[in-house]
């Protein structure tokens, strides 16, 4: 299903967008609050499905737990490493896929990590972080 979007579509649609994404990503990384925001209990993540929502697979959250070891709990810590919470999912996803496909020439560790996940997993992680509030 996501495979219908690539690889061909990625270059037709994705590549121009990708440039945009990178720009957006850099902007987003740049405007992050450094260090000191107070951490609050998570509010975007809720337990139970009392409101009849269909649970997504918990895979995204499981994978995202590794991200927190650099990006802080819920991806909210901004240092030289950018925060992730609340960033637009398409930007995050395009970045992750670009890392995975070695399309980010100056990238350091992210290409090696992104290669450990399927495209679907990366997309779901992007959505997961985008759904979290930045604070």
């Amino acid at each position: 299903m996501f495979d219908t979007l690539r690889p061909r579509h990625f270059f037709v649609i994705g590549l121009p967008l990708f440039v945009l994404c990178v720009t957006a990503g850099l902007l987003l990384a740049g405007d992050s609050e450094p260090a000191d925001q107070a951490e609050t209990l998570p509010d975007a993540v809720e337990s139970g499905d009392a409101e009849g929502r269909v649970p997504l697979d918990s895979r995204a959250e499981i994978i995202a737990m590794s991200c927190a070891a650099c990006h802080g709990t819920d991806g909210r810590k901004a240092t030289a490493i950018p925060a992730l919470a609340g960033k637009p999912a398409p930007v995050l996803e395009a970045l992750l896929l670009a890392y995975k496909r070695d399309q980010m020439p100056d990238a350091t560790v992210m290409p090696r990590l992104a290669k450990g996940y399927t495209d679907e997993e990366l997309a779901s992680v992007a959505e997961y972080f985008s759904a979290l509030s930045p604070e």
Partner: peptide, 20 residues
């Protein structure tokens, strides 16, 4: 992907729900 750049859209979907 169509709406890239429209900030805040992502919040409208993908709200994560953990198993009950």
């Amino acid at each position: 992907l169509k709406w890239i750049g429209v900030a805040g859209l992502s919040a409208a979907f993908g709200a994560y729900v953990r198993p009950a």
